[in-house]
Design a protein around this nucleic acid. Structure first.
Lengths: 214, 214
DNA sequence: AGCGGCTGTAGGAAATATCCTACAACCGGT
DNA sequence: ACCGGTTGTAGGATATTTCCTACAGCCGCT
């Protein structure tokens, strides 16, 4: 029987996804994990047909889990779920080896479809993401001073920090969420500012806001 | 039989809540709405024992629905759910007549308990909110909350500081510009935050930006 | 195989910001 | 005139942030 792992720190969301899958007639055994560590633990102990990972969990996020799995050469399909409309993330994740990307906005049947596809080893690329993918090909070597694309030069980690800073979290909180030293976050911050040519957190916030990343 | 209305724009969340309530043995007929208008519509057509409203829905938010209901003298108990930990809203909402306030972090059984209580016409005040309530008694504040005019309550000095902070200047720089002690600026900052119900400089920036004050 | 540059991570010290508290001047109501 | 709340201002103690520096692991290029 199909075996799925759902990792999300919010009970409501886990239950909701289970319910939706059941309603859609997806017949599967489901294991729940409420953070990245539990998810990895579970994967170590059992075999899953697919993982549904929330991108933003405290401690180890979905991305971390994804990367770690790939690093240890585990190819279980991973469907990433984001609570926010951070379309920006989609590309990064697909490149990092995710089998699909959905936001919480997604209609229930999209979730079911996506799950069915990834379980079969296919990828689930939503129209929106497909478009982003296409765009990214064109703009590949286009002019670097596009202004609204300065954030693409950031590494994944930097980008994560970027978003949190833009939302107004301080290094301390971010460090906790990602369990990294405050110092590390501070380093990311300065690299971000440097790379993007900004000077203050307020500019980060504005940038993110103008590009609808919040 | 108990009849509940759940309004949230995210299907996952609705399903999750339903599942959690069922698991907790709450026996009720449940109607779903995916935005504020549908919620109001539903209330017009049927009688509910309680409404569970998501605070942040596009279009008409939970707050809007709550206000409108109260305005038309409907006293159905309303339990407000927030996806974020914006504790500051809690007070506004309780004052506006909500029967309780929960965040998505809340454990499943808290949701069930809260629902049971409000259905019986009681209020559900979490410890956290209770504390906020207590605090607010000291700092009594008349709320003429028009929401996008929150800055009008600021004094001139406060407003000047507000703008500078929103632009990303730090207390030190502002203090220099205005020849005031850094400490003074810090005081203004906290009064501003307090008066406007914001928590971070990033929120100041966003507020200013959205209201085209930058 | 070696080099230079990025990336992820963090330490120490110095700079800053924040919190809580305080107080005088002022302002409106009784 | 007196009282309570609001405003302008700032001190002390703390907590947080920022800056500069460092270093190991990779990656691509020669």
């Amino acid at each position: 029987m199909t075996h799925l792992l759902i990792a999300d720190d919010h009970a409501v969301v886990r239950k909701g996804m289970i319910q939706i899958l059941r309603d859609a007639g997806v017949d599967a055994e489901i294991t729940e994990a409420s953070d990245g560590h539990q998810a990895l633990q579970a994967v170590r102990e059992q075999r899953f047909d697919a993982l549904l990972l929330d991108i933003s969990m405290p401690g180890k996020s979905g991305i971390d889990v994804l990367k770690q799995l790939r690093a240890q050469d585990d190819h279980t399909p991973v469907l990433v779920l984001s609570m926010y409309a951070e379309e920006q993330y989609a590309l990064r994740l697909i490149r990092a080896g995710a089998a699909g990307y959905l936001t919480k906005e997604s209609a229930p049947d999209q979730l079911a479809t996506a799950v069915r596809m990834v379980v079969q080893g296919k990828r689930y690329i939503s129209p929106e993401v497909a478009e982003l993918l296409a765009d990214s090909l064109n703009q590949r070597q286009a002019d670097a001073d596009d202004d609204s694309n300065r954030h693409t030069q950031l590494t994944d980690r930097e980008f994560q920090v970027f978003l949190q800073l833009a939302r107004g979290l301080g290094p301390t909180e971010i460090g906790q969420q990602m369990n990294l030293s405050v110092k590390t976050i501070a380093s990311y911050r300065s690299r971000i500012l440097q790379k993007m040519g900004l000077r203050t957190n307020a500019e980060l916030t504005l940038y993110a806001n103008r590009n609808a990343m919040l």
